[in-house]
């Protein structure tokens, strides 16, 4: 299996970060207390050189700033659509695969900060749209905001396996989504469409007739279908879905699939499809619990092939994560 190491922030405005400064860089061997180059993933800049040029100091972190809420649309009691006006810089930087931000209510401490994906961007209005599902204390707190909100970003590691999506051109891509986790797939569709890709989307109906992201997918020209994908009682894929997916992967060329659901959903689907066609590449939304987003706090840490990685910054091959037995992690 193809394993890779990639830092989503490498080469960005936020690189080198505190990890590099402290000899814990994900990519650069020279910044892992080794003294020779063994660069694990090149993104066009030498992190070692950038750190030296920056006086051996990390670049400034993202910080919370206050932004105006443009509109709130309560789709359901527990599902709120927020449109927020940001700077042009942020809108531009957030128009990328896997983009997300941390948001919280003004005046509340930073540990209220919650990662929320960008579903859509609007350059003309300089806004982003986010879909927020109320879960517990943090999300309940956020939806009390009506005028403005504290937001920090841009972050990009909301989709794992981005390398399989980034350079696609004129290719068929399948997106399988469920619930609010389907929202980063909308922005991915937008990016993929720019490169002339053909997007087919199957969304799990869940409790509703239609996933809340459906219209947004359609807006970007995806072919969308709402069906029952998973029976959550038996934790199995539905017969209807199995028939459809078998038909699809047998008949058509679908080199890449993005799974945009919770971990159980992603795992079931990836295991099912990979066993039938191991030539397909997978990307999947990142569901790990996050707190700082900077690779420092460790709340997003997962074990992958025997090593701990910080999933808020590090990219991995979703196959590597989801195919493994839980005991292996």
């Amino acid at each position: 299996m193809y394993r890779f190491v990639e830092c989503i922030d490498a080469g960005s405005d936020f690189c080198p970060c505190h990890l590099a400064e402290k000899g814990e860089c994900i990519i650069c061997s020279q910044l892992q207390n080794k003294v020779f180059c063994d660069c694990l993933y090149w993104k066009g800049t030498c992190i070692y050189q950038e750190l030296l040029n920056n006086g051996n100091k990390a670049k400034k972190n993202r910080e919370y700033k206050k932004f105006d809420i443009v509109s709130i649309n309560k789709i359901r009691d527990d599902l709120h659509l927020y449109e927020v006006k940001l700077t042009n810089y942020l809108v531009r930087e957030l128009d990328n695969f896997g983009a997300f931000v941390f948001i919280k209510r003004p005046q509340h401490p930073d540990y209220f900060g919650t990662p929320i994906s960008i579903m859509d961007v609007d350059y003309e209005k300089s806004t982003v749209t986010m879909l927020i599902k109320i879960h517990g204390v943090k999300t309940k707190d956020i939806v009390e905001c009506s005028e403005n909100i504290m937001l920090k970003g841009p972050y990009w590691n909301g989709i794992q396996g981005q390398r399989f999506l980034r350079n696609l051109k004129d290719t068929n891509v399948l997106i399988l989504g469920r619930g609010v986790a389907a929202s980063p797939g909308v922005l991915a569709t937008r990016r993929l469409k720019i490169n002339g890709n053909n997007i087919k989307v199957m969304l799990d109906k869940g409790r509703s007739q239609e996933n809340a992201c459906t219209l947004y997918y359609k807006k970007y020209g995806a072919d969308v279908e709402n069906i029952n994908i998973i029976n959550y009682k038996t934790k199995n894929l539905t017969d209807d879905f199995v028939d459809k997916i078998d038909d699809l992967i047998n008949k058509e060329e679908v080199p890449v699939i993005l799974t945009a659901g919770d971990d159980d959903f992603n795992r079931l689907i990836i295991n099912y499809i990979y066993k039938r066609n191991n030539k397909i590449y997978f990307a999947s939304v990142n569901n790990h619990i996050m707190c700082c987003g900077e690779g420092v706090c460790g709340s997003c840490q997962i074990k992958l092939s025997g090593k701990y990685i910080r999933s808020c910054k590090q990219q991995y091959n979703p196959i590597e994560y989801y195919l493994m037995e839980d005991g292996n992690r």
């Binding site: 020279q30 030498c46 070692y48």
Partner: peptide, 13 residues
């Protein structure tokens, strides 16, 4: 090279 070696053992890229 690559760059990091040219930095550490030389005078940069």
């Amino acid at each position: 090279g690559p760059m990091g070696n040219c930095i550490r053992y030389g005078k940069g890229c």
